[in-house]
Design a protein around this nucleic acid. Structure first.
Lengths: 187, 187
DNA sequence: GAACCATACTCAATGATATGACTATTCCTG
DNA sequence: CAGGAATAGTCATATCATTGAGTATGGTTC
């Protein structure tokens, strides 16, 4: 019952179709959750049946029709109930970390390659998050925005995503350099 | 096929029983994976059937007998193959972030409470990881240890876990303070 | 000596997530 | 006008993860 609340939380920002949600969950909002389209369509169906969101058909002539969804009062209540019960912390679950754990007993070359690649990906995500943050706060300073705006949730989760990726990048770079220095490999 | 490799990676450090593994995966090694005992016992059974680990019975008189497992050459090869194929990055998946995303439309009080509680938990984990790191490197400096030891994998993943929890803690504290300042609540 | 805790492990059921293969429509490009 | 990309969505399945309830033994504590 977790994707459920993530979908509700995103739909607070406006009406979206399953397809639009899929894009949000794929690229931008990986700052707090990730899901593939199939999961989202299935979840939207369930949420609508439960009365937590309401969909309306939009007829389009230049492309296939779509259904836009909004959170109902019952949906908001569900979110409030969700926020009221203490949540359990979730830890990191990353294949790359498993590889590093075992790296002393393996050929380090492919692990180093993956670390370096991951550092680049993380750096790109940091930049993406920076752009999103700038866009969200407009021409206000961060301090002013966070004090005065009435929609800071997405900004705050984006900050967390940025911190995570920054930390990730630094670690990947450090570990890659270290492993390279220990066992010099070609390429 | 991910817990599978996490188990193999941990078993590189020595012989463990399912029960010991359960403790490792529960407390300390949350730096790169987490699993409950039932998952581990099931995975150990599968790994043994696949010939990737070998178990041996240990008869005990002061407590129930146990089975200790070690990685076989086939298991090491499996790990090497795992490390050779590029892995996909995994993102954060955290209920607390979902709550923060929605916080503008909810009563902030329970969210603030959870953020503050989480900051304390994260701080405790940072300290735990610091103790683990000190224990792993003995009386060497970090630099020397990382240059010269022949078992740095656990240290490196522990560093990542520490970074994650430190970042987590700072973010929780900042967001909690911010939300408190915006909507002063009792308690 | 009853209750409880730590060790050591198992079974069953459900729910969540991931993967792959599909159907349609329209626009744009070559 | 053929092919591909973007939009919009569906179906089926397999694996993974979570939850809850059990079994059994021995040691410790009140």
């Amino acid at each position: 019952m977790a994707l459920r609340h993530a979908v509700l939380a995103v739909l607070l920002d406006g009406e979206y179709s399953g397809y639009q949600l899929a894009k949000i969950f794929d690229v931008s909002c990986s700052n707090f959750w990730y899901a593939v389209p199939q999961q989202l369509y299935a979840e939207l169906t369930k949420l609508e049946r439960a009365g937590l969101i309401a969909g309306r058909q939009v007829i389009q002539h230049d492309r296939p029709n779509k259904r836009l969804f909004t959170v109902t009062p019952a949906g908001l209540a569900e979110l409030a109930a969700f926020a009221a019960v203490p949540s359990k912390p979730s830890s990191i679950r990353e294949d790359l970390l498993v590889m590093v754990q075992a790296v002393d007993r393996l050929d380090p070359a492919p692990v180093i390659a993956q670390l370096e690649e991951r550092a680049v990906i993380a750096a790109a995500k940091v930049e993406l998050f920076d752009r999103m943050l700038r866009q969200l706060r407009g021409d206000l300073t961060e301090e002013t925005f966070l004090r005065e705006s009435d929609r800071i949730g997405p900004y705050l989760t984006c900050l967390r995503g940025r911190g995570f990726e920054q930390e990730n990048r630094e670690w990947c770079e450090r570990v890659a350099a270290l492993l390279r220095a220990r066992a010099p490999v070609s390429r």
